[in-house]
Amino acid sequence: MGIIKARHVAFDYLRMDEEGQVESRSRAVDDVDLDVEAGDFVAILGHNGSGKSTLAKHINAILLPTEGTVFVDGKDTQDESKLWEIRQSAGMVFQNPDNQIIGTIVDEDVGFGPENMGVPQDEIWQRVEESLKAVGMWEYRSHSPNKLSGGQKQRVAIAGVVAMRPKCIVLDEPTAMLDPNGRQEVIRTVRELNRREHVTVLLITHYMEEVIHADKVIVMDQGKIVMQGTPREVFSHVGELKRFRLDVPQATLVAYELQKAGIALPDGILSNEELIGALEAYRKKRQNK
């Protein structure tokens, strides 16, 4: 049974005039089907305005679909009585690290979710300790979040979600405001959570380097899903990705250009190491000739 199951989801943003009449509507998500299996690491890619963040907010029931249905862990997001259960089973991490930390001390912030759920005090402390250790921020538990780096703040935010023991974590461009070091820090943390704790991860991003480890990549454009598959499958269509205004990892791009120049390299090269390996193999083949 998939943990997230969306069918024909569509969402309209409405622009109201002063009288509250609908002035115009713009479709952000258009007829999307999405299936995520428990334990998967799924990445959603898309250019600005592709509807990827809007789709993400449906999984946490922050937005409700205009058309279609979203089921999270078997619960319909339209069902208001299940709202808090859904928010507990699908945690969400946002883009701006400053705007999602509520507590004035790190451990208080991590405890915020469990406090809301009405978890008994002893267990809150236990959960806070576990989740801060899981993201490697336990030493910073009594710091003020204002004194942490962007990557550290984002890890605290992830710990805050982990402490609610969700089955699935949705990360909405968690690295967009971070420097390269912070980005790596956060992605490493997310991958570890997925591998060790088997938390389902839905990562929304426009950085290609972050998706090469995903089990499945979904590409969105203008509210629709336009490509999906393993990273290797998706990145072998460099031309198409460019049409959706997406960059590909540098190694993939070099391989693609070399292919066009007539050098026979395999499709779907993702990392520098793979590219070097493929080039070595190519050289040997030519020498043998």
């Binding site: 509520i102 915020f112 809301n116 005090q121």
Partner: peptide, 24 residues
């Protein structure tokens, strides 16, 4: 903008007022 983001983040983490809330 920050207030809007924060409200969303709080809701996403299950904040629904003081009722049924425990204290850390």
């Amino acid at each position: 903008r920050r207030a809007n983001d924060l409200a969303m983040a709080m809701e996403a983490r299950g904040y629904h007022g003081g009722e049924g809330r425990t204290k850390m």
